[in-house]
């Protein structure tokens, strides 16, 4: 019955059913089935942009994009359509945008893991013990780096909470790559001396917050 409806009609039906709590599987399924081919084309282009990816990724990314479209996309699409006509164009284009972002996010997050040797399952079966141990070691290091980054940002969040002025200077100087006290001072409307002071104070507090967090973390306790 949904085959006869246009995309816009189907989309309106999805939105209506969602608002009234009716099942949306029928119209949504038809809609995303129609959008499957262009979505996979977009995914393939993002895969090409990152120089990696597989058909299995493509399935996962498509499903993920459908989930996001459902979770947040419907409301976002409505909001953006109203606030910025032309930005989102049609529901289909909006969905393809979500697909694009889901794919980019996926390949950004999996950059290091995917840089490891072949993802072909047949190849994986033939991995030598040394390759396996290298992969395990790489995984461990990746996890440790992620943990360290997480702790750093947690320490920075504490700095923002407890010493916001120092945090602003640090953010500008280091995270935003300004790395020039005159420019920091100009942007923060403070003296250059104060910029030096704030960055220096931020550094000291960050180190101690980071050390506190490391000693509190499970990995720190293990050590």
């Amino acid at each position: 019955m949904f085959e006869q409806l246009t995309d816009d009609e189907l989309f309106a039906e999805v939105v209506r059913r969602r608002a009234t709590g009716e099942p949306i599987g029928g119209p949504l399924g038809t809609l995303v089935q129609r959008w499957n081919r262009p979505a996979r084309y977009v995914i393939s282009k993002i895969q090409a942009s990152y120089g990696r990816g597989s058909p299995a990724d493509s399935d996962e990314l498509f499903q993920d994009a459908v989930g996001k479209f459902l979770d947040r996309g419907l409301d976002q699409f409505r909001g953006i359509s109203q606030q910025m006509p032309g930005r989102s164009a049609s529901p289909k284009t909006f969905f393809l945008r979500i697909v694009k972002h889901v794919a980019i996010d996926f390949y950004r997050r999996h950059r290091e893991e995917l840089a490891a040797p072949s993802s072909d399952p047949d190849d994986a079966m033939e991995e030598s013990p040394s390759e396996r141990s290298r992969a395990v070691e790489m995984g461990r290091r990746t996890e440790e780096r992620a943990d360290a980054q997480e702790l750093y940002w947690a320490a920075f969040a504490r700095l923002q909470q407890e010493h916001p002025k120092e945090a602003s200077a640090w953010e500008l100087y280091h995270h935003e790559d300004v790395e020039d006290h005159e420019e920091c001072a100009r942007r923060l409307n403070i003296t250059v001396v104060n910029s030096y002071k704030r960055v220096s104070r931020a550094q000291a507090y960050l180190k101690l917050y980071l050390l506190d967090l490391q000693r509190e973390s499970p990995r720190g306790e293990e050590a």
Binding site: T6, W35, V42, A48, H101
Partner: peptide, 28 residues
């Protein structure tokens, strides 16, 4: 590149009779 891909995908569908309905309604 994703934008280019979206545009290309839409153009490809425009020329594809089997997807004419959806293309008609989706093309902006």
């Amino acid at each position: 590149e994703g934008d280019d891909a979206i545009e290309e995908a839409l153009e490809m569908e425009e020329g594809d009779g089997t997807m004419a309905r959806s293309a008609r309604s989706s093309r902006e």
